[in-house]
Simulated scan of single mutants.
Amino acid sequence: MASALVNFWNSMWESLLSSLGLGGGKEGTLLLLGLDNAGKTTLLHRLRTGDVKHFPPTDRPYQSDKFSFQGLTFQAWDVGGHEAVRHIWEDYVCECSAVLFLVDATDADRMEEAGFELDALVGEKLVEDIPIAILFNKCDLPEAISSKDICQRMNYDELVENHGADKISAFRISVLRGEGYQQAFRWVASFL
């Protein structure tokens, strides 16, 4: 039943994207970044299989998967988010069409750290023409922080100023419930 529902919604989104001129054979490469435990591997698994599975923080330098989502084909790189691998993020940026930067909306103690890492990435010359979708994950949980508070703690306005309002956007999502990231993909598809 669950996979039938996922297939139904994927079909509906594919029709919508095609009608908007956003589907139809477009391909891109995504770079999934963010601090450890933000939900990058879980999102990638859900996009690839339609199922939700919880994973421990990624302990290897990267994982790559190819998947189709709503009429688009993506090669996605999950490079991991623990501190020891963040220095290699920039090595993957030059090969990507867009960055999905996941933020754990329930982890108030690490918002500034996430903002710092995103600011460092935005400061790289390689990123200046690449769209960055910031995904506030786990927004379905009661302890999730409001978007306004997350943006304030991460200095979102400064990030937009440095990267350009047309190249950076934030989305509230729940990987667990399968909500919100569809809008982020539609936004990303507009750059392909």
Score class of each variant (00 low, 15 high):
C94S: 12
A2P: 10
D91H: 12
W187L: 04
H45Q: 12
Q63K: 05
N155I: 04
V99M: 00
G180Y: 00
Q152M: 09
N155A: 13
V127W: 03
H54K: 11
G115E: 00
L31H: 03
T29E: 06
E27T: 09
M1I: 12
G178L: 05
D36S: 13
N10T: 13
T58Q: 12
E179I: 11
A170R: 04
L32Q: 03
I145D: 00
F185D: 01
N10E: 15
T42H: 03
D149Y: 05
H45A: 11
A76V: 04
D129N: 15
R177T: 06
A184H: 00
L31S: 02
P57M: 01
N155H: 13
F191Q: 06
L5K: 15
L126F: 09
C151P: 00
V175W: 00
L141M: 13
K66M: 04
Q183I: 00
D107Y: 06
E83I: 05
R177Q: 12
G34C: 07
L121A: 08
F191A: 08
F185T: 00
S64F: 10
P142E: 09
C94T: 12
I130V: 13
A76D: 05
V52I: 15
H54L: 14
W77Q: 05
I173E: 01
D109V: 09
E158V: 13
G50C: 08
S190E: 11
P131A: 09
P61A: 07
P142R: 08
I145M: 07
A165C: 14
D149F: 06
F191V: 06
S64H: 08
F116C: 04
V127E: 01
G23F: 02
G123Q: 08
E161T: 07
F116Y: 07
T49P: 07
E112R: 10
G23H: 02
Q183G: 13
V122T: 07
A98I: 01
E128R: 15
K53L: 13
S18M: 10
V160D: 03
H87W: 14
N137Q: 02
D119V: 02
L118P: 02
E27R: 08
W89K: 05
G71D: 01
D59S: 14
T29S: 10
D107P: 03
L43M: 12
I88E: 12
L17Y: 14
K53V: 11
N162D: 15
C94D: 12
G164T: 04
S146K: 06
P61N: 09
E128L: 12
E83Y: 07
G80M: 06
L20Y: 14
L44K: 02
V103C: 00
S97Y: 06
D51L: 07
Q152T: 12
Q152L: 11
F67P: 01
M154D: 02
K40C: 09
G164I: 03
Q182L: 07
Q182E: 11
D78A: 10
S64G: 06
W89I: 05
D104H: 01
L31C: 02
D157R: 10
E112S: 10
L30C: 01
A133G: 13
P142V: 04
C96W: 03
C94M: 12
T49Q: 08
Y62H: 12
V188C: 09
E179K: 14
F185H: 00
I173M: 02
T29L: 05
M12A: 15
Q63Y: 06
Q183C: 06
Q63D: 07
K26L: 11
L16W: 15
R186C: 09
H87Q: 12
